[in-house]
Structures are given as structure tokens and as C-alpha cells.
Design a protein around this nucleic acid. Structure first.
Lengths: 343, 343
DNA sequence: CTGAAAGCGCTTACAG
DNA sequence: CTGAAAGCGCTTACAG
């Protein structure tokens, strides 16, 4: 591993001072440095494959081209990794790197994470939640540039980027209605998650808009077995048997299909099923492939970074003024698990 | 956000020079600085809540307490995030942070990633693959401290940490045999993945050890639909019908259970199913819960970091000597999808 | 036993 | 138009 060239090396080779090198390489050469020297510096830099040492730069400028990301849990969920992926790519495109720390839902660890990151001179912070929720900003964040991804500040002081759950749920419900279903039941997630309530709202709104009776959602949950149990209950006891099921998420939908199958029912012939998440390991590969609502994880990551980049670049934000809460679209992904109801 | 205290602040408050502060805070005070001054320095540092600026430290020492991680894809897989999780925690416990870059399986992006990371003065590198494979070391890595996680260097020059796939597959197969199964079929993954071959080996070895006939594995794949199709084929055409199925992974096992169910077969009463991965979103929640072999993702991440830490700390490694290839255990997780065969 | 100096690599006023 | 100097915050020889 060869020693990296420094600005001194470039200056020596070009026969100028380090100041001149710095000026020219930072685009402030014009009017300050003679054209010949500029050319010499550029050539020398090229030849030595020079790029400034980021650490020295950081010490000098108190910036680091690094963004600190704190998450409450990276590992679980899987598709939530797309959020980091989107953030990482967008950041890299602008020369930024991500320093990510997982607080494991531990508030204390979270405070420490922000402090650690701050001491490393990160230029901004993202707090990303693995499932949608309110986030009470850590006091250590005040005065910093920060964006929230998949969570939001109840006080509205921090910019946040969240999925438009209500609209997503509406389009799922609408798709079922437009496919001819009238007996539609929602198998919802656990009440502790704000997504559950939002999706229930969307469901109810769309049914009401279609002037269809709104049935109360059936409490299920987020995992395969929960979807299984709820579907078993609904499919064997509801009279008439529902022909369309809006399910909490794709995993629960696996359970629903499993339950239907074990009852001798076929999806989508006897019952149509629609999931949520567009879980890449599930939805495109289910039998039948799953019609679902996609969560904009990648987009949330990208948008949060972009917001940070804009702020770092000097976009003005009136202090104390409420920050944006941006709702990102949850597109409906149509596959094979929804059909027309038998008449 | 208050200005952080510097060593100068501490020196001023304690009435000594910065050198003294540095010496004492780095544990080299004894025999160099008088006891009283040591106490004064410690007290001042405490009062000012002083900790050295990592950026300045990094410029000075050419170390950064940061480890560069390059992965071929973080996002997909989900449970693979556990690798990063394990690495991140182990690193944090030693004051190290992770700078991770995803190359998206692009070799060029990978080279660039190592370069970027190197210029940021990382103290070591991890290359982590999302699925087990050979990894041809990037030339930019030579001379650096590096560990491979979930991949291995064919030339054996780089330390690597991989799952013991053969043993994992053997214990899955053994579990079926010990449960009384004699008609056992393997539904294997795609041939391009080295895990497929390794698991097939384990399967064959264990069958041979039990003096049972070894049937050739049935090619399936890693996704739900592939498991479904393969199971459909095997369950409807094999005579006698197999009572035990060793499946490529947990997702494919979902498809297997789905297929069995749609054929009116019950798991595990009519057919026992065993997965691979212990996918946390699948195995514990399947109906029935899935007996499976756990992939040591977290352990690979931890072990790789630990290796780096040891090397950074000065553990000697004879240059040119073959590095360790460490096989991490894949424990069998017994749940409800395996039963005794009907007689 | 302790302080002043040098230097990691960079950029930005400041003289000339 | 250009170079010498200062300084970001730290540690490590080096004088005294």
C-alpha cells in the first residue's frame, strides 16, 4: 500500500506552494493563480493521483462528509435494510459516507450514539425507525441538522419522511372493491403499532366512499401464525364468508393463504388476499404471487439524506418553525392473489 | 450544542501543559507527572467532560477506531443484517465504529469502496458476502488488516469466517433419521451457490453413515415458489412418498408446507419438513413452527471483528502464511415441523 | 519531573 | 498574483 500523495507532494511537483494547490483544486484559482501554474498544479495532482486526506480536511473544516445514522434496529425486518441502502447510495453519490449505530430500542444507547457520532464530526443525523412510530427527539440533537425516516416528531420540529399508510391502505381496499368484492374483511396488525390504526382508517374510508358497510377490523398481527389464526377464524365463522381479505402485512398473508389452503379454499378463486410491505422475499414468490402495497423504504432513506444534503448545503430553515412531514407514496403492486369473487 | 472541551481547556483548568494532560489521560503519567498534578488533571478532565477529539486523534495517529465494511448487498436477505449487527456491537464494545459500503455485487464499486475507506484511515477491513461464496481479494487490500465474513479466499491468504454448512446439513439429516424416517429426500438450492453443494454433501454423508440409500437431491431453489414446485413434484410422483424433506432454506420450506397442505397432507403428520437459515421472520412463526438449521450470521460478524481487533492490537500473523478459515457452528433448532413417520 | 516544539494534512486569511 | 504563517486538536520525542 503506497503512501498517499499530500498537497505538499503536488506543490513540489508543480513548483508552487501548498496554498496555490489548495486554491486551484478547490476551484478558486481563477484570478488568484496564473493560468500556467494552474495547469501545472492540475497536471501534478493528476499524475500523483492526489485527493485530499479526508481526516485532515475534517479537522480543518469541522465537517466530515459523513452522516450519522441511528436506528432502533437494523437487523430485523429485512426489507427495512432498503432504507439504509437508499440512504447509503444517495449519500455516496454526493461523496458522503454513513456511520450507522443501532440502539436496539435502548433510549440510553441512543443518546450515547448521537454523542459518539457528534464527536466524530458528522455533518448531520438521521434517525430511522424500523417500523413506523412517533419519535421523541433526543435532546442531544438540538442545533444539529437532522431528518427522521419512518418515524415522526410529534412536536413537528424535525423534518420527517414517512409512508402514506392511509392512502396505501385505501388503494388496497379500492383494488378489492373494483375487482367486484363486497364482502371484505381487514385482518389488522397489533394495536401498538401506529401503522395498524392508519391502515384501518384507509380501509374504512375507502369502504365508506364506495358506500359499502364498514366492518370492524379483525385483530390479527404481523406474523405468519397470527394471519393463520385470524384467517381460520374469519373463514370458518363469518357468514357470508368474506371473499376479500386485506391483511396486516405480507408475512401474515402467508398464514392467511396457508389457512385458506388447509380449508380447501383456493386463492384467489375462493378468496382474494392482499398484503402490505411488498416484502421482497415473500410477495413476488408466494403461490400465488402476492398483490400487496409497497412500503417506500428506499425512498424514505433517499429523501432523508437529500433533506440533510440540502440543509448542509445551506438551505434555510426558519428556526422554531414546524418542519416538513413528508408522506411518501405506498404503491399498489398488483400480482396474482386477487381475483373476481365467485358469484 | 456546547463547544467540546479540548486538551488545552483541561490543561488550563488544571494549570499544566497539554503534554501533561495527554500523558496522564493516556495512562503514562506515573513516573512522569507528579501525583498532585495527575489528580488535578483527572479532576479537570472529569469536570469538563473531556474526551479527545477523534478526528484530531486520527490525523495524529493515522488510526481512526473505525472499521471499513464492504458487503455485496446489505439490503436483501434480512437475517443477514444480523452479521452487521454482530459486527457492529462487537466493534462498539471496543470503541470502534463501522463505515459500511454496499458494492451491489459490482466489482468496480467494490474497489472504489476499499479505496474510499482506506483514505478515511480505517484500521481494518471486513468483506462480508450475503450468501456464502468464494471471494477473490481486491488488490487494494494487500498489506491491510482484513477479515472475510460468510465468504472465503480460495488462495487461503485471508482469514475467513464461514458457516459449517456440511455439519449443519448433517445434523438436519440426522434429526430426521433419528425421528424414524427412512424415505428422506433433499430439495436443494440452486447449483450456483456453494452452500447447495455443501449441504448436499452433508446430507449424503449422514445417510451413508446410517447405511441408508442416498437418493440424488432434487433441484429446487431458494424461494417459496421453488420449494412449492419441487415439493409438488416429489410428493405426487415419488413412490413410496417420502416422509421426510430436507429443504434448501426456510423460504423454500414455506412453499413445501403450502404444497403439502394443498395436497391434503399435514405437516408433520404426513410429511416432516426441515428448513435452513432459522429466518427469524419465518421459522418461529410458521404453521407448524419450523425445525431448521441456524446460520451463524451474528457469530460471523462478531468473529470477523474480533479477528481484526486482535490484529490491530498486534497479534502476529506470519506474512504469506495461510490464514485461518474458521467454520462456525450451524445449530439445529428443533421446533414442530418434524415428527415420526406414520408406519 | 515538566513545558515548548514539531508535526499529522489541510485551508484561509494575511503580507508582499 | 503568490508564498509564508497560523491553526484545527492531538501526541511524541526533546530539552531543561
Amino acid at each position: 500500500m503506497k503512501r498517499r500523495a499530500t498537497s505538499q507532494d503536488v506543490a513540489d511537483l508543480a513548483g508552487v506552494s501548498r496554498s496555490a494547490v489548495s486554491l486551484v483544486l478547490n476551484g478558486r484559482g481563477q484570478g488568484n493563480i496564473s493560468v500556467e501554474k494552474q495547469a501545472a498544479i492540475l497536471a501534478a495532482a493528476e499524475e500523483l493521483d492526489y485527493s485530499p486526506n479526508p481526516v485532515a480536511l475534517s479537522l480543518r473544516t469541522r465537517r466530515s462528509s459523513t452522516i450519522g445514522v441511528v436506528t432502533d434496529s437494523i437487523a430485523t425486518a429485512g426489507f427495512a435494510g432498503q432504507l439504509l441502502q437508499g440512504a447509503s447510495e444517495r449519500a455516496a453519490a454526493h461523496g458522503y459516507l454513513l456511520l450507522v449505530i443501532d440502539s436496539q430500542h435502548d433510549r440510553l444507547a441512543e443518546e450515547r450514539a448521537f454523542e459518539t457520532l457528534g464527536s466524530r464530526q458528522v455533518d448531520g443525523f438521521i434517525y430511522a425507525a424500523m417500523s413506523l412510530r412517533a419519535y421523541e427527539p433526543s435532546p442531544g440533537l438540538s442545533g444539529s441538522i437532522v431528518a427522521l425516516a419512518n418515524c415522526f416528531d410529534p412536536a413537528g420540529q424535525l423534518a420527517s419522511f414517512v409512508p402514506d399508510e392511509v392512502a396505501g391502505s385505501r388503494s388496497a381496499t379500492r383494488h378489492l372493491i373494483e375487482s367486484g368484492h363486497r364482502e371484505i374483511v381487514m385482518l389488522t396488525g397489533t394495536p401498538d403499532m401506529v401503522a395498524s390504526g392508519l391502515r384501518e382508517q384507509g380501509f374504512a374510508q375507502e369502504l365508506a366512499a364506495a358506500e359499502l358497510p364498514v366492518r370492524p377490523p379483525i385483530s390479527a398481527g404481523w406474523e405468519i401464525d397470527k394471519g393463520y389464526a385470524a384467517a381460520m377464524h374469519v373463514l370458518t365463522t363469518f357468514e357470508p364468508r368474506p371473499t376479500g381479505l386485506v391483511v396486516a402485512n405480507d408475512r401474515a398473508a402467508i398464514g392467511v393463504v396457508l389457512a385458506a389452503t388447509s380449508l380447501g379454499l383456493s386463492v384467489p378463486r375462493d378468496v382474494s388476499v392482499i398484503g402490505y410491505d411488498d416484502d421482497e422475499n415473500v410477495a413476488p414468490w408466494m403461490v400465488p404471487t402476492l398483490t400487496t402495497v409497497r412500503l417506500p423504504h428506499r425512498e424514505m432513506g433517499e429523501a432523508a439524506i437529500q433533506h440533510l444534503l440540502d440543509q448542509i448545503g445551506g438551505a434555510v430553515q426558519t428556526p422554531g418553525a414546524p418542519a416538513d412531514k413528508v408522506f411518501l407514496e405506498c404503491p399498489l403492486i398488483i400480482r396474482d392473489s386477487v381475483g373476481q369473487p365467485a358469484r
